[in-house]
Computed example of a mutant assay.
Amino acid sequence: MDWTWLGPVLSLIGALSGGLLAAWFTSQKEERRLVREQVRVARTALERCAASQQGPDIIAYPGADPQLIAEIRRNRWQIFFDLYFDSNFEAKASLGAIRHLDAEMSKVLDKSTSWRLEPSEIAILRNSLIRIEQRHS
């Protein structure tokens, strides 16, 4: 019996299986990198949202024109609410993209009927992000 075909066949099997394994490992590594990037974006958005919870406090100075102070106060509050709405929207959107990675995060986001994140939810979401980071590091 002639066994000369066995070498090329085994080489072909090795090359194909090596290529498949290399592609699989590469895709797993890339997926983990993308998850870490999404978690980083979500964490930044959540911290911006938490930071935007406190509104401006405009104090009038003695001798300052009350009309000018009222104008400054109105402008600062307008800027605050614009940032507040934007940061809440961005946080909910970025957390929604990774909600499948943590059951507790999903529960918080599912029960939330408001357009904004409550201060009590922010601590829970922070812990969820920490758990996700630990699992995907």
Rank of each mutant, 00 (worst) to 15 (best):
M1P: 06
M1F: 00
M1C: 05
W3S: 09
W3P: 09
W3T: 13
T4P: 03
T4D: 11
T4L: 06
W5I: 11
W5G: 08
P8L: 02
P8C: 01
V9H: 08
L10D: 06
S11C: 14
L12Y: 05
I13E: 07
G14K: 03
A15L: 11
L16A: 12
S17P: 02
G18N: 01
G18I: 01
G19A: 14
T26I: 00
S27M: 07
Q28I: 08
K29V: 05
E30K: 13
R32A: 07
R32E: 05
R33H: 00
L34N: 09
V35I: 15
V35N: 04
V35T: 14
R36V: 02
R36G: 02
E37S: 11
Q38E: 11
V39E: 03
R43K: 08
T44V: 13
L46S: 07
E47M: 13
R48A: 13
A50L: 01
S52F: 00
S52K: 03
Q54H: 06
Q54F: 01
A60D: 08
P62G: 08
P62Q: 10
A64E: 06
D65C: 08
P66N: 07
P66I: 09
P66V: 10
Q67I: 11
Q67V: 13
L68R: 15
A70V: 02
R73N: 12
R74F: 07
N75L: 14
N75F: 09
R76P: 03
R76K: 13
W77A: 02
W77M: 10
F80A: 05
F80T: 05
F81V: 04
F81M: 09
F81C: 02
D82V: 04
D82N: 12
D82Y: 02
L83E: 14
L83S: 12
F85L: 12
S87C: 06
S87N: 11
F89L: 15
E90Q: 13
E90G: 01
E90N: 12
A91Y: 00
A91R: 04
A91N: 05
K92A: 02
K92H: 03
A93W: 00
A93R: 14
I98T: 01
I98V: 05
R99V: 08
L101P: 07
L101G: 09
D102W: 00
D102V: 02
A103H: 10
A103T: 13
E104N: 14
E104Q: 14
M105Q: 02
S106D: 13
S106C: 11
K107L: 13
V108L: 10
L109H: 05
K111S: 13
K111G: 04
K111Q: 12
T113I: 08
T113H: 10
S114M: 11
S114D: 15
S114W: 05
P119V: 10
S120Q: 11
S120E: 11
A123K: 11
I124G: 13
L125M: 03
R126V: 10
N127D: 15
L129H: 04
L129M: 04
I130K: 15
I130L: 15
R131E: 12
E133P: 04
E133W: 01
Q134H: 00
Q134Y: 00
H136T: 10
S137W: 07
